[in-house]
């Protein structure tokens, strides 16, 4: 009975100490000024231009990472083709992540990714390519990039 009491108590203490995971958008994917007819690629290694997300939570816990990626940038009535290749994502869960040389490189942002959080969480980098037409109307274009993360329990 005493052992059962201790075991139940420990279980609830552990469950109560689990940290929630949260995502912070550190940087949007910024193509900047583009010329009509001239495709523009943003490398995942380019700080300040590549998209950067930071996930915090329980050290060592595995999370699933899933992007919902747009296929075009839009402004009212017009759009620009947007391409994400299967190597456009990178992840680093070291305490000091290195965007220029991430720990896990050339990942497919179209797939569900499974990685463990580090002491400082985990950082995700994303590049992409925009392909404006020769007659692309000038102006500002945007699109949403949605990132969903969840503990897998592993």
């Amino acid at each position: 009975m005493r052992r059962l009491f201790i075991g139940v108590t420990l279980f609830f203490l552990i469950a109560a100490s689990s940290a929630a995971q949260t995502i912070t958008v550190n940087n949007n994917l910024v193509f900047g000024d583009m010329f009509p007819g001239v495709p523009n690629t943003i490398s995942k290694y380019t700080a300040g231009a590549a998209a950067e997300f930071h996930v915090s939570g329980t050290n060592g816990a595995e999370i699933s990472i899933q992007f919902t990626l747009p296929t075009k940038l839009t402004k009212i009535g017009v759009s620009i083709q947007l391409i994400f290749f299967d190597t456009d994502c990178a992840i680093d869960h070291r305490p000091n992540p290195d965007q220029s040389s991430p720990l896990f490189d050339n990942l497919d942002p179209w797939s569900t990714l499974l990685y463990r959080l580090g002491v400082q969480g985990l950082t995700i980098y994303l590049g992409g390519t925009a392909v404006p037409r020769i007659v692309q109307p000038p102006g500002a274009y945007t699109a949403d990039i949605t990132l969903t993360v969840a503990y897998t329990g592993a």
């Binding site: 958008v25 009509p36 993360v149």
Partner: peptide
């Protein structure tokens, strides 16, 4: 109470942006 505190998942929305310059 603790289950209520721990989120099952989190979702964030970033953005891709570009500015197309004058046509030629």
């Amino acid at each position: 109470l603790s289950v209520n505190r721990v989120q099952a998942q989190d979702v964030a929305t970033g953005a891709a942006t570009a500015t197309v310059l004058a046509a030629l």
